[in-house]
Simulated assay, not measured.
Amino acid sequence: MEGDTAQAETETAKPATPGGGEARRRTSDDEARDSLHILPLSSIPLETPGLQHARLIKNVRLQTVVEMFHDAQTGSGQVIPRHIPAYFESYKEEVERDLVKIEKIATASSFDVYSSRIELRRLNIDVNSVESLTLSDSKKAELTNYMRVFTRPLMEYVYGQEEVQVADVSDIIRMFATPNRDEALRNLRMMADRLDIGLTEIPQFLEEYGDIFLSLAYFRKCLDEIVPEVQKFVTWMGEIRSSAEVKRDSRQMKMLEDIANDLTDISTSITGRFESFDNRSKDFWNDINADTFRAIRELIASHHVTIGGVLCGLAVKMNLWKSRFLRGGGGPNRRLEFVKSEILPGLSHIKALEQSARNV
């Protein structure tokens, strides 16, 4: 799902090697837009020339760093945000003002488009006109099957049991703007009455409905890709415990057991949250009114930050594991060192995020 997670911090940033063409740039832009752990700084109004081409990323320890360049040949050049001024000495005042914004955004637990919108609104930045804060067209197409769960009850409500083929919510909005059946028009009027809006406001409602459930579909797809990897990792890590050397060290054994339990609990808890969202969305269609829609919209939106943070944390760790151990091998000592140095740091943060969501 995510691209290769950035490796350890580097303090010397070199320019990226030019080349690759428009198609490569577009692919990179789409990767960033659809990512859980990347935020292009072009999304933020900054004054410092050069920073617009950099991006914030989460490293495997879930620290935010500024990635000055990323290239297959030269690797990833990362800088701690507070060290940025050293690279732009000709723009001291501008970079100091930009750094205030960057450091505030850097505290976010995830850089998915939904969490990023929330963080940028807190800085009074208009996010509606920023293209990089929407999912790419290719990602939306990937989510079509996930969105059917939310578009099907809408179609059934308006058109009865008739099977109508739609790719995404924009198709529904166009269809509902000119309903082709008297019964459909009556049902739309009934929906408008129950939502306490005018018939002409139905497209706006559908757009809002589509956006909130597109976010849920996006996170759901991330979850469905990450959880199986977590399960494979727990099995792979568990194999270390059969090593004679590890068996003799009760502290190492306990550490491995605690990590396995934490990862399993986090995965189980966040999966349960999605099941709760599914049930609440069904409740809305059983009793359509303005209050039930507002309630489910606010419920899902209130979980964006924690869902994004938990999935981002798991994704960067699982991606690094897959890149370091391509064939799932590795001796006990090498595996143990990887778990201690790359998986354990930041895991308590993921666990705390998921626990905090239970109180929302």
Rank of each mutant, 00 (worst) to 15 (best):
L206F: 11
R220P: 06
S348N: 11
D262W: 00
Y146K: 11
G21D: 10
G77L: 02
L188W: 05
V360F: 08
H70W: 10
D71T: 01
F233R: 04
Q78D: 04
L336H: 12
W236N: 00
S269G: 11
T264S: 12
N128C: 01
R248N: 08
W285S: 00
L256G: 01
F205T: 00
P81V: 02
Y159L: 13
L199V: 15
T178A: 15
K101G: 02
E298F: 03
S302E: 09
A167I: 02
T64H: 03
N289W: 12
R294D: 14
E225F: 03
R152D: 12
L56A: 04
H53I: 05
R324I: 11
N319F: 03
A86R: 15
T235I: 14
E257F: 10
T235P: 00
F150Y: 15
I105C: 04
E245M: 09
A23P: 02
P49V: 02
L195C: 06
R82W: 10
R189K: 15
L51H: 11
R25N: 10
N286H: 15
Q204E: 04
V310L: 01
S43P: 00
P203I: 05
N319I: 00
G308M: 03
E337I: 14
I240E: 00
S76N: 13
I202H: 03
M318Y: 05
E9S: 03
E201H: 05
K101P: 02
G330H: 10
A106Y: 08
L314M: 05
L347M: 08
R33M: 12
E337C: 07
I105G: 01
V166Q: 10
E96S: 13
R25T: 06
M318D: 07
Q7D: 00
S43L: 02
R280C: 04
L185G: 09
A54Q: 06
S267P: 07
Q161V: 10
D137F: 05
D291P: 07
E342C: 13
L353M: 09
A301G: 03
A260N: 12
V149N: 08
G272H: 13
P332M: 01
Y159E: 12
S269T: 15
K317L: 03
E229Y: 06
P332C: 01
L154A: 14
D182I: 00
S35Y: 02
T306N: 05
L263V: 04
Y157K: 12
V130Q: 06
T264H: 12
V234K: 05
R280Q: 13
R152M: 11
T271Y: 11
D182T: 04
S115H: 01
H37R: 14
R117P: 01
